[in-house]
Design a binder for these strands. Structure first.
Length: 395
RNA sequence: GGCCCUAUCGUCUAUCGGUUAGGACACAAGCUUUUCAAGCUUGGAAGCAGGGUUCGACUCCCUGUAGGGUCACCA
């Protein structure tokens, strides 16, 4: 059996969003489990809207997420190839130059159209089963503005053919595009790939996900502290499940468990809350040092990390604990500060609240903060000692 | 509007004709005298509607309804 080839074909007309990442992920998982070649193809045939910064964002997002490719191509580097095909189609009569009356600003007077054979087309979709279309209603679709300017459908089909793509795994928005692309495939004598159209990710109101629904760009999730493996894990769960009750997966586990055939047909709403939960589960599985680093970053802007503490001595006692006792506890903790186990067993003897609350309060002066042990780890024993000492003096 | 796709708790989903329709997130209540977080316990919460097929339908078929996609010289 010859090797499978899949591709991710984004256009650099915006930042990579979570829907695109999910498509990339499904292709990646498929590639890994089938030992397939995975190609990244930047589809920048729209010269107006394609921007280098978006291409950089695409690359940066994939790198952060850990989605890797075997090859990268850019369609604007392959214009000669498309021109060759267009000439051939013009020659053999499967396409023709069409005289137009421009309806809008910027439209051409001449455009190249595919001669539509007007027939019924059926194809099998791995997710949806057999799908049928009558291409008659499509008319003669525009495939290029000129020899040098192919339109999406043409360039996409030519590249899939030239690159030997065996499986086209893409978003459902392309389902209706498939028949016209098949028409082009037949015109250029390309073999049909196997299709898998995955359901869309929806906003909470079931509309298409867009900027106005908040953070949808992958990098925004990165900036928000979402772990890449957590985002991938959650994205995989949107529209797919392993048939077991496992919900937390590493990338390796996803590669093992993933199955295109188990993909849901309907669109799925993106639930930020569940993403947060998945992220939390992944954080819990990280080594302790890394967890501390994450926490350190997340509290770096808290007042108690940046400036002098102002302790309110009415708050340092846990409930009804007498001040003298609180002082005693603090002094004891001060003497064993480097030993978490010893502090813990002392706290268990004396009452956790009695001991641990004042310690935490002495360290931060804040109503809410991480627990005292984490704080000591982040602040360091020296700084922690200083703070506790200062609190003792004020009691 | 035409064409295409879809339809189980608020959300993501399990169920391959026979189940008290299961799980997770979220939510509510309670527990745990380390705040927050976490953890634990408990709870409420679903088969879009109408017809068939069948001894029996959430599950198969039809119709309707709803949602989504697409109908570009964007991808």
């Amino acid at each position: 059996m010859s090797k499978s080839v899949v591709r991710m074909a984004p256009s650099p007309t915006g930042n990579l969003h979570i829907g695109g990442l999910r498509t990339a992920l499904f292709n990646y998982l498929f590639a890994k489990q089938h030992d397939a070649k995975y190609i990244l193809r930047i589809e920048d045939t729209d010269r107006e809207r394609s921007k280098p910064e978006f291409e950089r964002n695409l690359l940066e997002s994939f790198e952060w997420a850990g989605i890797t490719f075997d090859e990268t191509h850019r369609q604007s580097d392959r214009l000669e190839l498309y021109a060759k095909y267009i000439r051939k189609m013009l020659d053999d009569g499967s396409a023709y130059v069409s005289k137009e009356v421009p309806q809008e600003e910027g439209q051409r007077e001449e455009v190249i159209r595919l001669k539509n054979p007007n027939k019924k087309i059926a194809f099998d979709d791995l997710v949806r089963g057999t799908v049928e279309f009558d291409t008659t209603e499509l008319g003669d679709v525009v495939i290029a503005k000129s020899l040098e300017e192919p339109v999406f459908h043409l360039a996409n089909v030519i590249d899939d053919h030239e690159m030997g793509i065996t499986h086209v795994i893409r978003g459902e928005e392309h389902l209706s595009n498939t028949p016209r692309q098949i028409l082009i495939m037949e015109a250029i004598g390309a073999k049909r790939p196997i299709f898998a159209h995955i359901p869309l990710i929806l906003a909470p109101d079931r509309s298409k996900l867009s900027k106005r629904h908040g953070a949808v760009s992958v990098i925004e999730y990165k900036n928000r502290g979402i772990l890449p493996q957590a985002l991938l894990n959650y994205l995989a769960l949107l529209g797919w499940n392993p048939g077991t009750e496992q919900e937390i997966f590493t990338l390796e586990e996803l590669i093992k468990a993933f199955d295109l055939k188990k993909i849901q047909k309907g669109g799925a709403i993106f639930d930020e809350k569940k993403l947060e939960w998945v992220n939390k589960e992944h954080i819990k599985r990280l080594p302790p040092e890394e967890q501390i680093n994450l926490l350190r970053k997340s509290i770096e802007n808290e007042p108690y990390m940046k400036s002098e503490l102002h302790l309110d001595m009415n708050r340092i006692n846990w409930k009804e604990t007498p001040k003298e006792e609180t002082k005693k506890h603090l002094e004891k903790v001060l003497s064993i500060i480097g030993n978490k186990d010893e502090i813990m067993s002392y706290a268990e003897r004396e009452g956790k609240g009695n001991v641990l609350w004042p310690v935490r309060y002495a360290l931060t002066g804040a109503e809410k903060s991480p627990d005292p042990f984490t704080l000591i780890a982040i602040l360091g024993t020296e700084e922690s000692k200083k703070r506790i000492l200062k609190a003792i003096e004020q009691i």
